[in-house]
Simulated assay, not measured.
Amino acid sequence: MIMTDPSQPPDPVDLRRASDDGDAEAAHRLAVLAAVGFRMPPDWTLALGQLARAAALGSGTARDQLAVLAPDAGPVAAGRDDAAAWDQAARAVDLASWLAPPRPMMISPGPHVLSIPGFLPPAACDWIIQRASERVGPAEVYDPATGLGRREGARTNSACAFDLWSLDLVMVLLRERVIRVTGLPAHGLEPLQVLRYDTGETFDWHVDYLTPDQPGLAEDMARKGQRIATLLVYLNEDYEGGETAFESTGLRHRGARGDALMWANTLPDGRVDTRTRHAGLPPVKGVKWVASQWCRSGPPRR
C-alpha cells in the first residue's frame, strides 16, 4: 500500500507501479491525480481506467463512484465483480455531459448573483453528503490577525474540507463544472468544503472576500490572491428554512437538491463588492447540506 505524507506528494510513476502490482488505493489515488493533472497533463482516459482498476481490485469507494458516474451501466447495476465489467462501467461514463454544466440564470444584477438549476445530479449530491458525514466538525472563520481558523459565535454550523489527498472523481467533476461555469482557472480553487447546518445552526452575516488591511488576511491574499467568487451547491432539500440571504437586496434563495448559487465577491475593476454581505440562515426543521467552492484570483504560492 502506498503511504503518503501530504508534505511529500506521491509520484504518479510510483502510483502507477503500485497499481500495476495490485494496490487498489494507489490506483484510486492515481485516478484522482490524472483527473486534476497533478505532475502530468489532465488525462480522463487514464483517470477512469484507474478508477475501474481500483474497483476491480476491490475498492468499495471506486465501485460506488462508478455507480454514481455511470448509473445506467449494466455491469454495475447487475453487481458483477470482474475486471471487464468495471472497465465497461468506466467506458459508460458520459464524460461530455459531466463536463457541460447547465447555463446560469441571473437573479440579481448587483450584487451579481446567478442561479444554476440542476448543477449536480442527485446521486452525486448523496455521495458527497455520505463522504462528508464522517468528517464534519465545528466550522471556523478566519482570524483577521493571524489568518488562521478560529471558532466564533456567528458561525455555529459544521464543516469539512477535501484537499487533493481526499478528493474523489465525483468531487473532481464537481470542481470541473465550477471551472467551466465560472471561467476561472483550476489553480484558483480552494479545497472543496461541505457544510452541515443542523436545525437552528447558522452562519450569520459575513462576506467571503478578504480585506488586506488586516495582517493575517493580507498575508493570505499575498499567497493565494483574492477570493473573487463563491459557488454553493444545495445537496439536499428535506429541510425547512435555511435560505442563503443577501443583506443589501433582501434576496433569500433556497435551491432544490443539485441546484447551485454563484456570486462575484469583487467588481469588474477588482474592488470588493460590499453588497455581497450574506448569511446562511438556520433551518427551522431538518438538516441542510451544501457544498461550497471558493475561487481565488491566482494560483497559491508558498
Rank of each mutant, 00 (worst) to 15 (best):
A123S: 10
F119S: 03
L267T: 06
D21M: 13
P10L: 01
L57V: 11
G250N: 04
P101S: 03
T202Q: 14
A78R: 12
R177N: 01
V93A: 04
V113I: 13
G298C: 14
D94G: 05
R177Y: 01
A52L: 02
V170M: 01
S297I: 08
P12E: 13
Q88N: 05
S19H: 08
A84P: 00
G49D: 12
G225S: 07
Q193I: 12
P299W: 13
I128Y: 00
I129G: 02
V36R: 11
R271N: 10
D238P: 07
A24E: 10
P299V: 09
L261W: 05
L169P: 09
M3R: 12
D11T: 01
C125D: 06
F119M: 08
D269W: 04
T156F: 08
V136I: 15
G149K: 11
T4N: 07
M3P: 01
G255F: 08
E247W: 03
L114A: 07
A264P: 00
A256T: 15
P268T: 08
M40Y: 04
F38C: 05
A47H: 05
M221F: 10
R17W: 05
E25R: 14
R39Q: 14
D259H: 05
W98T: 03
D87P: 00
H278V: 08
R29P: 02
R80F: 09
A62C: 04
P144S: 09
G110L: 15
W44A: 05
M262P: 00
P75W: 00
D126C: 08
L164E: 13
E190C: 03
V233N: 01
P41T: 15
L95A: 04
Q193A: 12
D198N: 10
W205P: 05
R301V: 14
P283R: 07
D213H: 08
D64R: 12
K288N: 00
V287H: 02
V207F: 09
V76F: 11
A78T: 14
L189K: 02
P122K: 04
V181G: 00
V181N: 04
R252M: 15
R39K: 11
R135Q: 13
D198A: 12
I129Y: 00
W165P: 00
L217A: 00
L231K: 00
H278Q: 02
P122W: 08
D204Q: 09
D204A: 15
L217P: 02
T249A: 11
K224V: 14
G22H: 01
V290R: 00
E25S: 14
P102H: 05
G250R: 07
L261P: 02
H278K: 01
W44H: 11
W98D: 00
R296G: 07
I2T: 13
L99P: 01
D163I: 07
V181M: 07
G241K: 06
G153S: 11
R196C: 14
A56T: 12
L267S: 03
E176V: 04
D81V: 13
T230M: 04
R29W: 02
L261V: 03
W263S: 04
E219D: 14
S248N: 02
P144E: 12
L46G: 03
P138T: 12
Y197E: 05
P75F: 03
A67W: 06
F203P: 05
A83Y: 01
L195C: 04
R254L: 15
T199C: 14
D23V: 03
R151M: 07
P111Q: 03
G280C: 03
A73V: 10
A100M: 10
G270N: 05
D94K: 09
P12W: 09
A256W: 13
H112A: 15
